[in-house]
């Protein structure tokens, strides 16, 4: 497999894995949970280093996943008190975990170089060079991992489609028909945490955070149907990956950054030109309405005496 194809496949699989869950996060107003997780994994890495004196990828991923799950469950618990809104809960929890990590490093590991960039955040450009051999085929490790996560997420949302849909749009209604919104919310958040950590390890944090939020937000501007939104999210993710890769090789820039920028450009385009919710469409609507009101007033005016 050529390097370019591997990179595009890796990014596309990140887009798939995150795009299957991203729409629900955007609809549930916890879009930034991915960013929270990207910072909250620091204490996990410190803990693994302190306990086992290692920076081996597997151990690091396990430690990071542990704290990613701690992070999302704490956010969920704070939200469940009913006293804190979800955005504030996110903003309270991840700095706390990050602080614990920083304190752990300065206190016990100040001698060694221990940070997120050198331990868990991978770089998509190196993805083709880390391979495993499956049945005689050399295949990039990140592709295998991300394919597994994508399949898992796909299974999750297809098996629990009805439940996730109901709890996303109307938690009270779903409670009355016997679905537990708290449980579903936790399940979804844990899935995001694990997906994010595994994806961080392959392609770095910012691409994952971007792929969780931006394609889903773009799709939200295009449709009102949930399954269409999920499908659009994944497709937009793939297109961004492809366009970003092309752009990056044209100007020799960071691949992850270029893919993020491509997704951002897509969002900007849709924000302007979406047929129903775009700024242009709404401006046209407003103008039309204004004209209609003006002409209605005009035709009604002669009947009324002018004061």
């Amino acid at each position: 497999m050529s390097t370019d194809v591997t990179i595009i496949l890796t990014a596309g699989l990140v887009a798939t894995a995150t795009g299957l869950i991203g729409p629900f996060l955007v609809l549930r107003r916890v879009a930034l949970v991915g960013d929270a997780v990207s910072h909250a994994v620091l204490p996990g890495i410190v803990m693994v280093y302190l306990l086992f004196q290692t920076r081996a990828p597997l151990a690091v991923v396990v430690g990071a996943s542990l704290f990613a799950v701690v992070c999302v469950l704490s956010i969920d618990a704070l939200k469940a008190t009913g006293l804190v809104k979800s955005d504030a809960a996110i903003g309270l929890v991840f700095p706390l975990l990050f602080s614990l990590g920083v304190l752990g490093i300065t206190r016990y590991a100040s001698g060694i170089h221990l940070d997120l960039d050198s331990t868990i955040y991978g770089e998509i450009a190196f993805a083709p060079f880390r391979t495993v051999s499956i049945g005689g085929f050399e295949i990039a490790r990140s592709i295998v991992q991300l394919a597994c996560v994508s399949v898992f997420n796909l299974a999750l949302i297809t098996l629990l489609w009805k439940e996730i849909k109901a709890t996303t749009f109307d938690p009270d209604f779903s409670r009355t028909i016997g679905i537990r919104p708290a449980l579903l919310s936790r399940l979804l958040l844990i899935a995001v945490a694990i997906t994010a950590v595994i994806a961080f390890e392959s392609v770095g944090a910012i691409l994952v955070v971007t792929m969780i939020i931006v394609p889903a937000a773009t799709a939200y501007l295009l449709t009102d149907r949930l399954w269409v939104m999920v499908a659009l999210t994944v497709s937009i993710g793939w297109v961004s990956a492809l366009a970003g890769h092309t752009g990056a090789s044209a100007i020799d820039a960071s691949i992850a950054g270029a893919m993020g920028l491509a997704a951002a450009c897509g969002f900007a385009l849709v924000l302007l030109a979406s047929p129903r919710y775009g700024l242009l469409a709404r401006a046209v609507q407003r103008a039309r309405r204004r004209r209609a009101i003006a002409s209605a007033l005009e035709s009604a005016a002669p009947a009324r005496p002018v004061a």
Binding site: V26, R29, V30, A31, L32, D35, S86, D87, I206, V209, T210, I212, I213, V214, A216, A217, Y220, L221, A253, S254, A256, G257, A258, M259, G260, L261, A263, A264, F267, L271, Y277, L279
Partner: peptide, 22 residues
């Protein structure tokens, strides 16, 4: 637009940071 505050923040955050990296 119909984008809620958290998603708007997320979009801006990731766009700016991607731009920064490039």
């Amino acid at each position: 637009s119909r984008i809620r505050p958290d998603a708007a923040i997320g979009v801006v955050l990731s766009s700016f940071f991607s731009l920064g990296i490039v």
